[in-house]
């Protein structure tokens, strides 16, 4: 906590900064954003910008996503004060290996994340933006939302939902690129495919239940 206070002092004189998105939109950001985005926080500490009129370029993020992230941080500005400690640390009967909870998304967050969809890919965009900006709460909401969509579905349903094409061995995404360009690597490709086949037999969930 003590270090947090010191860090805040470093950029405390101007409380707002400007950032610019990939597509050139410029946004004002305040403490709520700076405190939650570790990336920005670190950047400001290193840059020591005196002139807050010069926007910090965020080349990886589109304006719509940046705007959404700023809105998210404004809403959650007071959350930081209560970083959840590992409450159950001393609960010895707790299984350390339970999957993390994803049913604890707040109502506001649920509504917020609804504007992003799989079809348009915007759900992945906001997750990538959260990841780049290192906004833990936003990243968690995005990842939990996807986990909740996947849970309980069989592989076909997941394929359909996320528009994943089934790639039989030797084709599709994982085919080594260089195999197309040179003959030599054509042999390699054969080998790799075989290896892959043996290694990557499509796992069947039923494996565990026979």
């Amino acid at each position: 906590m003590a270090t947090n206070v010191e860090e805040t002092y470093l950029y405390s004189s101007p409380t707002t900064f400007k950032v610019s998105s990939k597509d050139g939109e410029i946004f004002d950001i305040d403490d709520s954003f700076i405190n939650q985005s570790k990336t920005i926080k670190n950047m400001l500490n290193v840059l020591d910008i005196a002139d807050n009129h010069m926007p910090i370029p965020l080349q990886n993020i589109k304006g719509t996503m940046l705007n959404a992230a700023i809105v998210f941080c404004k809403y959650h500005k007071n959350d930081l004060l209560s970083i959840p400690d590992d409450e159950d640390e001393d609960d010895f009967e707790r299984d350390a290996y339970e999957p993390r909870r994803s049913d604890d998304i707040s109502e506001w967050d649920k509504e917020f994340i609804k504007q992003f969809t799989v079809e348009e890919g915007t759900l992945f965009d906001i997750i990538m933006a959260a990841n780049y900006l290192d906004i833990k709460a936003l990243l968690a909401v995005g990842c939990k939302t996807i986990a909740n969509m996947v849970r309980g579905k069989n592989s076909d349903q997941v394929r359909q939902m996320f528009n994943i094409s089934y790639d039989p061995p030797g084709e599709g995404l994982n085919t080594p690129r260089n195999s197309v360009t040179s003959k030599e690597s054509g042999d390699n490709q054969l080998l790799t495919t075989q290896e892959k086949e043996s290694r990557c037999k499509t796992p069947s969930p039923e494996l565990m239940y026979d």
Binding site: A147, V150, S155, V158, S165, D167, G172, L173, S204
Partner: peptide
């Protein structure tokens, strides 16, 4: 769910 997700494609 993890195994089913991973059965969708090789990536």
């Amino acid at each position: 769910s993890l195994v089913r997700l991973s059965s969708t494609c090789r990536y």
